[in-house]
Design a protein around this nucleic acid. Structure first.
Lengths: 334, 334
DNA sequence: ATGAAAGCGCTAACAA
DNA sequence: TTGTTAGCGCTTTCAT
């Protein structure tokens, strides 16, 4: 940028006013004569002036930037949440710095850079219980947990109503007459997995179907782990009539394993997932799933965070969004 | 943040030195007595001091932040590139502000906020030809195009060697004895689609197989558009022996359509994609594809950008990375 | 080796 | 309504 950016003073000089008047104009103060304003605006245009966000942050003591720390940026679920959060933030004049931390060490580093060095005004943390990272989060800093509870700590949170979603998914399978239902969970360190398991068990209890621990398998959200789950059950001669996978990708792995084993879906095995990723309707067979509105989760999270930033006294809300059952071929009866 | 952050002066006061000496210590200057340094560091620890990134940016005139503008954050391909870029940026002490612009208007707004207001030191633009957005990019600002050429403009770029990848994919199909090969492209406004089409045609020419325009369909990267492509060809009674889809998602749509039509893959129809997304090996059948190293593309792009920032005289490089053929069931002969 | 002074580009408080 | 004076927290001269 050879001809270094014009400053507020350059504009002031050209318009023949003080720099403070320019500041008033760019901040929309009403205490400026229409005529003065016009002169200043003309000068701004002529110089191609844009206020420096850095200088503003410096003077105002806030960055107008939020950060979102996620285990990764590539999971469709997480990316969708982030995209929703970014949208909301930008609508409110904020930027969203989204970063990934694969482990607690990276996370700690990020916290230092972002919060310690004052780069952001607030923090969104997706899956804070992915490891022990949540212990590293500073207190008294605007914060919202996404996809997890606050576990009693004074922290706002937004997540799916996981228990309800799992209950509905399981009831769907029960309604189809299935009794031996396998459960494939995500990493049980994460709240949503625990809740989805609870909803699963509750639905079984309501239907007076015994909960069989040998039909539970802990995956890692990947399709491969879902595949491994069914193959493992098959190896043990413990095949279920239906599978509730806690996300669509693991459900895809189950469909894959079923093909390998010569098991027809849905005739011999019903499969349901969670998420409704766009690809789910193209799986073989198209996947029945509990749709969650991920962008909305992101939007609500950003909204809560901005509320807490703008009004530190604001109540710390906990939002749970409901999932919607999308029935496709993988659980179709006939 | 009730007890407002300690400043360099607080540290100086506590250590009994000038604030300038503190600055020297935190910047690792050697012109400081070991003893002084110890005192300062003790004070830093005691106060829990962290330098303000904003104040630093202010004084140094650079933000140590890059921006990446992408059509969206949720496409696996794009998200992977971004993740790679973020990694490289952070390794070099920079942050990556990744944002999405669905159209040229949003893009323009982003450029103003990011470049105009001086929020970032450089720009990564993924798919700059998604619409007419590339015309809105300021000149003389550190910039790298990702997934596209610079089309003669003095702009560094990183992309897949799309022509080569398409040639290899097509040759794979030709080697299996297929002659009537359909091509499903992404949006032809994007460079990579044009290049992949060129590679496709070139492979046909090399094999002296006539290029049949009626077997070309322009999709939009989505699985649904891939599905629509095959259904359309079928409707026209123009079914091919093989399909080259320019990405895996469209290839999945083709697999889906083939099932609907009762066409067996690979016996009656061979299918190959591009990307090798993690789910591709779980499709039915597992998908043959040209694997591209997306995180690497992101890394290289960030690396180039940082080079150009640190040395404005540096040559504007154009990097093309090669794809790798991954053979799975969807093109298996027997 | 250390300190003092000035300034980065803006906003806030006070005067006029 | 407008201008003047001080900072915001740091780095960068230039002295000492």
């Amino acid at each position: 940028m050879p001809p270094s950016r014009p400053t507020i003073r350059d504009v002031a000089h050209l318009a023949g006013v003080s720099h403070q008047t320019v500041s008033r104009v760019i901040n929309g103060s009403t205490d400026v004569t229409a005529e003065t304003r016009d002169r200043v605006e003309a000068a701004i245009l002529e110089l191609g002036y844009h206020p420096s966000a850095i200088a503003r942050s410096m003077a105002r003591g806030q960055t107008h930037t939020l950060a979102c720390i996620s285990p990764n940026l590539t999971d469709y679920t997480l990316a969708s949440i982030i995209e929703g959060a970014e949208l909301e933030a930008r609508n409110q004049g904020y930027f969203l710095l989204s970063t990934s931390a694969q482990n607690a060490v990276d996370f700690n580093e990020l916290i230092k850079e972002l919060v310690g060095h004052g780069r952001v005004d607030g923090l969104l943390v997706i899956n804070p219980y992915a490891d022990e990272r949540y212990q590293l989060i500073p207190e008294n800093f605007p914060l919202v947990f996404v996809g997890a509870h606050s576990r009693g700590a004074p922290i706002a949170s937004v997540c799916l109503d996981d228990e309800d979603a799992a209950r509905a998914a399981t009831e769907h399978l029960l309604a189809r007459g299935h009794r031996r239902i396998a459960l494939i969970t995500g990493p049980m360190a994460e709240d949503c997995c625990v809740d989805r398991r609870a909803g699963f068990i509750q639905a079984l209890e309501n239907a007076e179907v015994p909960f069989d621990k040998s039909l539970v398998y802990e995956g890692d959200w990947s399709a491969s782990s879902g595949r491994e789950a069914l193959l493992t059950l098959a190896r043990r001669g413990n095949l279920p009539e239906a599978v509730f996978a806690q996300n669509d990708r693991m459900a895809l792995g189950v469909l894959h394993a079923a093909r390998d084993l010569g098991i027809r879906v849905p005739e011999q095995l019903a499969v349901i997932g969670v998420d409704d990723m766009p690809l789910a309707s193209h799986f073989d067979p198209p996947l029945t799933t509990m749709r969650q509105d991920m962008p909305r989760i992101g939007r609500e999270a950003a909204r809560l965070l901005l509320e807490n930033i703008q009004n530190p006294q604001a109540a710390l809300l906990h939002i749970k969004l409901r999932a919607e059952l999308i029935v496709r071929q993988s659980t179709r009866k006939e």
